[in-house]
Design a binder for these strands. Structure first.
Length: 553
RNA sequence: GGCCUGUUGGUGAAGCGGUUAACACAUUGCCCUCUCAAGGCAACAUUCAUGGGUUCAAGUCCCAUACAGGUCACCA
């Protein structure tokens, strides 16, 4: 019996030979230095913030070199796959501006000449290559049952040995063809493992674009390549797919680093040229003193949806990720305030080679705040409305009822060289402006109460607002006139009209303009901290100012 | 436990044998003809996990220790 016939018996019903597949996936015709890379998620429907970082970087590296970034779905774990998981991932990534040149485009369609891009649709291909290994005596059928494996593991950990199927534990490795076939004919279930040619005592040098060259032991474990359901393992699918799809750079999370020797060995055994690797450090969090990787299960902020719900603009998230990806990005953005992320050249060498970066929420918010401050009033309006439509019906109704008025509010201190930065996220907006809308003012005024500062005597407060509205207020005043009048008002009532005078001789006055303005401010808005008072007065208008003063009185 | 990686201020970090150890966020203080926001200025690591070594010179190179993270499936 030839090796070929033998391989056919172990993996029957395979349509094409590996040689045929080689011909079906020719070299790509790309410029020198073009990076071909991919994002290869499992279809769980959930996009982890770290995964967003990796897919973003992959896309940038491909685009920067006029290369290709494709999306491949790694659904070889049947149990974990989720219904509509593929479109969930695609939509989520798309919403962050991440698109693919090639690969799966929706649940059912793909674009590109190297498909299919869903691993479960490539079953025949993996088997063809597994057969190649069997023919070459580099892989074998293993009959080890779950129970036997557990026993081996237990024995190994008890005697403090390395875990895994290697050396004497690789029981079926030297079974003859005849024995193997006999057991198959008896209906025993089996999987295909490689015959690892490596030795644990040999060190190999592996190179990573980010971490540099490191040494690790050769893989000597007879890794599974085809599972009992006929589906390949991740490792094998990775080698076959990235070879056939002509991936030049594998950019992935650094949890894969420890499998690198395995992967390199697999490429060698298959006779493939190995791609270059870049392992991205994980995003971590400090959980009561212990630093660990952001976890899907434990940390809500691990999901990109968390920030969308929180009202953080997606652009801000991408800016944050860019600063995490390359530490010189932030400085570049400082130099190029209007620069787009796409104009920045990312480098592998500038990626963090440490074992993780703490996910820095205050920093994210700071970036977000700066981003929102640069938007126009229309953009703030539209995006706040978009947010409110999903998460705050009351505010949505208000925004829709007063579009122009709302934009005027958002425009306070916006169109200036250094715009006001008081919204960290769209969910902050309502809390900052509610008092500008009568409906919300009436509803929340009692709940929040008036935040008077130094002047709390109600008679004095009445005195100030009465004098102001009767003697000084004029809705047609420009800003300078208005402020001069507030000064006059202050002086008339025994307050310093000028801060300097007050600071020099505080004892000569009851207080200062600041105190008087605060009374006006709080009486109108309930709050001691608001944007420019003059603008607020203008937007409120005479009638509403009077009404709000009346409420106080 | 084995293997791999890492350890610079509250946080993210720059640094690649000779620098006053960048920068950003945060914090604190001061300033800025109304508050806040913004802005300006200033403070914040006598020291780069610890201990040895190499060198005229070390955060930077080497070795050990400690600590942290990752990984060791018919999961990816």
């Amino acid at each position: 019996m030839t090796n070929k016939e033998y391989a056919d018996l172990l993996l029957p019903g395979v349509e094409h030979t590996w040689e045929e597949y080689e011909a079906m996936y020719p070299e790509r015709d790309l410029p020198e230095g073009a990076i071909v890379t991919r994002y290869a998620p499992s279809p769980t429907g959930f996009v982890h913030i770290g995964a967003l970082l990796v897919s973003f970087l992959a896309g940038r590296f491909a685009a920067q070199t006029n290369g290709v970034n494709f999306l491949r779905i790694e659904d070889t774990d049947q149990e974990r796959s989720v219904e509509n998981g593929i479109s969930g991932i695609i939509n989520s990534l798309n919403s962050f501006g991440i698109t693919f040149d090639e690969g799966q485009m929706s649940e059912t369609e793909y674009k590109g000449n190297y498909g299919p891009y869903i691993q479960t649709e490539r079953g025949d291909i993996y088997k063809a290559y597994a057969k190649k290994l069997i023919e070459e005596d580099k892989a074998y059928a293993s009959f080890l049952s779950k129970e036997e494996l557990d026993k081996i593991r237990e024995e190994q950990s008890k005697s403090k040995q390395r875990l895994g199927i290697y050396g004497r534990y690789a029981k079926d490795r030297n079974l003859s063809k005849e024995e193997t076939l006999e057991r198959i004919n008896n209906g025993e279930s089996y999987i295909i493992r490689i015959k690892s040619p490596g030795s644990f005592f040999n060190k190999i040098k592996v190179n990573d674009l980010i971490k540099g060259t490191m040494e690790m032991p050769e893989n000597d474990i007879d890794e599974v390549i085809i599972k009992s359901d006929g589906i390949p393992t991740y490792h094998f699918a990775h080698a076959v797919d990235d070879h056939l799809m002509h991936t030049t750079h594998v950019i992935r999370g650094d949890e894969w680093l420890s499998s690198l020797s395995k992967h390199i060995q697999l490429f060698e055994m298959l006779g493939f040229k190995a791609p270059k690797y870049a392992h991205i450090a994980p995003l971590t969090k400090n959980d009561n003193g212990t630093i660990r990787k952001l976890s899907k299960r434990k940390d809500p902020e691990a999901s990109v949806d968390y920030f969308t719900e929180d009202g953080v603009p997606k652009e801000a998230i991408m800016l944050y990720l860019a600063t995490v990806a390359n530490s010189n990005f932030e400085g570049w953005l400082d130099q190029n305030p209007n620069g787009k992320i796409e104009d920045f050249k990312f480098e592998f060498k500038k990626c963090s080679s440490s074992s993780g970066s703490l996910f820095d929420l205050p920093k994210l918010y700071n970036i977000s705040k700066n981003f929102i401050s640069k938007l126009t009033k229309d953009e703030v309006y539209n995006r706040t409305l978009e947010y409110a439509t999903k998460y705050d019906e009351e505010f949505k109704d208000i925004l829709e009822k007063y579009p122009e008025y709302s934009k005027d509010i958002f425009n306070i201190e916006r169109e200036q060289k250094k715009p006001r930065k008081d919204y960290e996220k769209f969910s902050d907006v309502k809390g900052q402006v509610w008092y500008m809308y009568d409906e919300l003012f009436d509803k929340y005024v009692s709940e929040y109460g008036y935040d008077y500062q130094s002047i709390t005597d109600i008679n004095e407060i009445k005195n100030i607002i009465n004098t102001y509205i009767e003697k000084y207020y004029n809705e047609n005043d420009d800003k300078d006139t208005w402020f001069n009048k507030v000064k006059e008002l202050s002086e008339e009532l025994g307050y310093a009209g000028n801060m300097k005078d007050y600071k020099e001789n505080p004892d000569n006055y009851k207080g200062s303009v600041a105190d008087v303005s605060t009374v006006i401010r709080v009486s109108l808005t309930t709050r001691s901290q608001t944007p420019d008072l003059y603008e607020i007065l203008k937007l409120l208008g005479k009638e509403r100012i009077k009404n709000r003063f009346d409420i106080v009185k």
